[in-house]
Each structure stands twice: as C-alpha cells, then as structure tokens.
C-alpha cells in the first residue's frame, strides 16, 4: 500500500452524474454478474427447447393421426397459427425467468448492501430507477426477440419435415415476436418493481410467482362463485401478455387496446408505487 496520496495526474473534468452515466454503470455491473448471464442463457435455452420439442411433438402426432383435425378440440391443429403458437409455448417460462431477473436487479442492491454505493454515486434516487427500467426493458426485449428468432431457425426444418408451415412474415409469427417481447418486458418490469418494494430476493421472486400463478387461480375461483368478478379476471397479468401474443391458446374477450392498457397498468402502477417509496424510505 502506497503511503503517498497519488495526486490526480491531470485536473479532472468528470464527476457530473448523468442518466447516461448511471446506465453505463448499470450495464457494467449487470454483465459482471454471473447470475444475470445464467438467467439470460436459461431463458433462451428453455424457450428454444420447448419450441423444438413442441413442434416436433405436434408434427409427429399429426403424421401418425392424419385425421386429427376432425376430432373435436383439435380443429386448429396443423394450421399455420397453431404451429407458430406451439413454437411459442415457452413464453410463460420466459416471462418468469426474466421476471426473476427484474426482481434480482433491484433486490440484489439491498440484500448485498450495494444500494449504499449506488445511491451515493447518484443521490437522485429516481434516476437510478429510470436507468434500471431502461436496462431491464432493453435486455428482456432483446433476449426475447433473439429467443423467438432462434426458435424459428431451430423449428423451421422440423416443421418442414412434417409439412407444417412456419412463416416468418405471417401475422401469427409477428404477433409472437413483438407481443411476446412485450409480455416478457411486462414481467421483468413487474419483477423490478417487486424487487424494489420488497428489497428481498426470495420475497420478490415468490410474489412474482404469486402474481402470475396464484392470483389467476384465485381469480378462477372467484369467477366460478361470483358474477361481477368476471370483468376483472380477464385483466390477470398472465392472461394479458399471453393473450396478445397467443390468441389461439389464450383466447380473450378483450380488445387488443384493452389488453395493452392492462399490460400498461400492471407495469406502471407497481413502478409508480415503488418509485414513491424509493424516494421516501431510507437506504440501508
């Protein structure tokens, strides 16, 4: 350890904290952590794996039972839309895995104490939240777009093998590509808000899973016993994103704009609440 204080070589001009700087800082930390790289990888592998197995399964089923389309309940089998949605069956898992990534992005700050460093470097707390929103939105969107395109590349030869159509330019594929990314972004932003609200990884992940799995279950029960709840049940977060991307598998009575508004609500309200509390609570 040198006992001399190194004098700055040249007068430093830097030091001003900007949103761009906080973004760069977030990116450096994000990609220095193994957990984030692993989650991104797992999300891609799971999505592409389920896509390949799904398309192969449907293809071989149709081949062994050529009259499948006539059996009630299987009418859509073999259609181009059905093939695309089969390819996208792993979307819910992408939502969950990247939602967990969103939780960890903020809960990790508090569980490890690094929030102290973060908010000393940028005392304006909402700027940090804004940077994290941009980082997780960009990353989860890119990851999902890449997953979908990679799944297409893997499934295309499988589909052709069973004479199924898998059309990159088709409406169904475009829906899966863009709305699928939106569904994943929704989950990761909801996760981010939960991670910030609860400041705890286990709690954040558990509540994310609860919102996506337990809440819909409760909604189902309420729907069965009450009438008035039906309108609300359609706005459950699991139904909204998937309904937009996979209308065949998750039919909804909502208009697209209503579904989009629902997605926006599930993102904005938790983030708003998290932002307000971030400003007022102490950083530990």
């Amino acid at each position: 350890m040198s006992t001399e204080l190194a004098a700055p070589a040249a007068p430093r001009t830097g030091g001003k904290v900007t949103l761009g700087g906080v973004l760069r800082s977030e990116m450096i930390r994000f990609f220095s952590l193994n957990s984030t790289r692993i989650l991104i990888l797992v999300s891609m592998v799971v999505y592409i794996g389920i896509a390949a197995v799904g398309v192969w399964g449907v293809g071989s089923f149709l081949q062994s039972a050529p009259d499948a389309g006539q059996i009630p309940g299987t009418e859509s089998m073999g259609t181009a839309d059905f093939t695309v949605e089969t390819m996208a069956s792993g979307l819910m898992f992408s939502q969950l895995i990247l939602g967990v990534l969103g939780v960890l992005l903020f809960s990790g700050e508090f569980t490890t104490g690094s929030a102290v460093s973060t908010f000393l470097a940028s005392p304006q707390r909402l700027r940090v939240l804004a940077a994290k929103i941009i980082v997780i939105t960009g990353l989860s969107a890119v990851v999902q777009l890449v997953s979908t395109l990679a799944a297409y590349l893997v499934c295309r030869p499988l589909a052709e093998n069973y004479s199924l159509t898998l059309d990159l330019g088709g409406e169904a594929f475009q829906r899966v590509l863009w709305y699928g990314a939106l569904a994943v972004v929704m989950a990761s932003l909801l996760g981010l808000a939960l991670g910030l609200l609860l400041r705890n990884s286990a709690g954040g992940i558990t509540s994310l899973v609860a919102v996506f799995f337990v809440l819909p279950l409760i909604a189902q029960i309420l729907m069965a016993v009450t009438d008035w709840f039906k309108d609300y049940a359609r706005f459950m977060p699991d139904q909204l994103g998937l309904g937009l991307a996979l209308p065949l598998s998750y039919p909804s009575t909502l208009e697209s704009w209503q579904q989009l508004a629902g997605v926006a609500g599930w993102v904005l309200l938790p983030l708003l609440l998290a932002g307000i509390l971030l400003k007022s609570r102490d950083i530990k």
């Binding site: 830097g14 030091g15 001003k16 904290v17 900007t18 700087g21 906080v22 760069r24 800082s25 977030e26 450096i28 930390r29 220095s32 952590l33 690094s114 460093s117 470097a121 940028s122």
Partner: peptide, 15 residues
C-alpha cells in the same frame, strides 16, 4: 463483483 468492476461501475456513473 470484483473490486475492479465495482469501481468501474461507480466511476462510470460520474463519468
């Protein structure tokens, strides 16, 4: 994190 990536992230915030 490593000390290096922590400090680089901190430094990046302030340019």
């Amino acid at each position: 994190l490593t000390p290096r990536s922590h400090l680089r992230a901190m430094a990046a915030t302030a340019g």
